[in-house]
Design a protein around this nucleic acid. Structure first.
Lengths: 200, 200, 200, 200
DNA sequence: GATGAATGAGCGTTCATTCAT
DNA sequence: AATGAATGAACGCTCATTCAT
């Protein structure tokens, strides 16, 4: 009984969060009213507070759930002991899969994370950002050291170039379109890798 | 005397707009209160309305001034009759110069233009966007036709790749840093062009 | 249960509108603050917006409800096929009844209708005004043609005279005073009719 | 020198007050902005404060100047020792002349005096109102006592009837129209007097 | 006498949130 | 679980007023 209710409860929460994420992504967090989310979910604004503490806690759950999944994928890649080129390829592909599966969350993250990370509650965004930066920078530096990547470029610039190149796609990518995430990843990689690898 | 006053007036407006642009860029347009802009400018909220009609008209002036300058530069490049590679290079360099000079405006444009362009007042954003897309797509297609650029990639994907790659830089670029806009443009171009040009 | 709630809801709206009408009538629409209405209703200003879209929509509801009732009464009189003297008498009596029942609305109408009717939302005020004028003028002209009313007076002047004479009473009439609306109508009529009817 | 300046000064004040009165009459006192008056006078809002202490003091001057003139005329009539019928006639004619000469002031008085008279500064409005009421009531009562006016009507009702009948005309009367104030007075009187005098 | 720029109080309105039912 | 009604803080904006120039 309790288990069933708990599951039903969890499902309802997930549904509501998915709805909220879509609206946040479409209109921006600040510009989204709680009433709008409730409308979309077929209830009144006040009723959402039975399920969630606040508008902010909805945002929090959306972003942390996304980051949890993201890091599960990334950590697997990083632990696989791949060479620099393959590692970069795997990370990019992972990223496009996340964009495909968590499009709204990615879009929210892109738009809001900078100013959110100043708040204690969202400090984990800054942590994640740092961990992310470290993972990429180390992989790139390893590639330069091994002679796989060009050494004449500022590594931080390359990092930002690759990072932005990938994540910004969330602003136009729509699931179910012409290209699968893997196909987009393939084309992106063929450009990006050509730009940063040494000529052989 | 009148000339001096006129100039002083125009300077004050420009100062206030620069202040507003910085705050809009840092916090987002919606999240920025008119009181915050006034604080930053050392006056009271109501006083801003002596200089501007509304918060929205400040945004309007910031964005249209930016786009005017941008297109002055772009039109010069596009009318110069350059080859595809050189044209892309010149456009990218122009863009980084704009980021250097109008950083906040670029950041605001990135964040807000999608939903703003639905309003009649900001229809020019959609027009600009279209003109921009045409300029880039034609240059890229010309490059493919002439054999300068790779023909195995989706041209729209390449367009988005290059476009985002450049403009997203506004989100981290700070004037007066280690690299000049021209240096950043040079490094970006050496990556981007390697990714899209045919191997010779 | 739903019916009770629906009724309660409608009653609350009506109460709030009556409160608003009194304040509007006492201080003028523009000079009345939403906070004042809310005070009078025992709530906070923002709470009124749960019930109404705007201050203007309160005004709109007050005026259109009044005009609806007014025309219900007038149309009945006009359709009854009375002679000119009896028709004028019935219209005046109807008017005093409206003043008795909708005193504040009448006062608001007197004070605000001229400038309101320029706004599209309140165009119905101008329509009503025109219909009103037509009804009175035709009745008066019929009376002149039939020899019941004096022909030596400017009919439009007579119209204004009678119209103002009646409606201005709303500015001093208070329900529950010494005279009933019917008694006031009787005395008014005995003056007005003596002034405009031919001597027999 | 001082005299000339003083006169020029007084003329400028009078011009500005006339302008203000027209705007107050057309839009209502509260709805009129100081800036609007200044626009109409060809200056900036702040400049009016060289001539007047405040918006309220403009209103004050307009109303008290009007009442001063009104009472000059009324007092002459009341001191002339006329019979009730002639006295009423002379007062009504005086009133229409005031409407003709001080239309805007009369309109402002009609619209604003009730709520203004609660303020100490405008207590003279209530005084004037009282004096006015006394003059009319005594004249009417004298007429009833002498058998000139009907005794079967409530005198206060008759007073309000005649008073409103006259003053409300300010809301539609425009100087220079078809009828002169004397002609309007004549027609009004022929109706009003027929309504209140005894049949002979 | 008049201007230009600012003040400061207050306005209509929005919205996240609360809570009795 | 959800509703209906309300709160209270904040927002964009207006406007009478001030004052150095």
């Amino acid at each position: 009984m309790t288990a069933i209710t708990g599951t039903a409860n969890a499902e309802r929460r997930a549904e509501l969060l998915a709805t909220a994420a879509e609206v946040f992504a479409a209109q921006g967090y600040n510009a989204t009213t709680v009433r709008r989310i409730a409308d979309e979910a077929g209830m009144l604004a006040g009723s959402l507070y039975y399920h969630f503490d606040s508008k902010e806690s909805m945002l929090d759950e959306i972003l942390s759930a996304f980051l949890d999944e993201l890091w599960t994928g990334y950590d697997t890649v990083l632990a696989a002991g791949l060479g620099p080129r393959e590692a970069i390829g795997a990370l990019v592909t992972q990223s496009f899969r996340q964009i495909d599966r968590h499009g709204p969350a990615v879009a929210i993250y892109q738009r809001e994370s900078r100013h959110l990370s100043a708040q204690p509650r969202f400090a984990y965004l800054a942590d994640s950002q740092l961990k992310f930066e470290n993972a990429w920078l180390r992989t790139l530096e390893r590639g330069v050291a091994e002679g796989a990547f060009r050494g004449d470029l500022d590594v931080r610039l390359v990092y930002r170039f690759v990072r932005d190149t990938v994540w910004v796609a969330a602003s136009w990518y729509r699931p179910g379109g012409t290209h699968s995430p893997e196909e987009i990843a393939r084309q992106y990689l063929s450009m990006v890798l050509a730009g940063i690898t040494t000529k052989t």
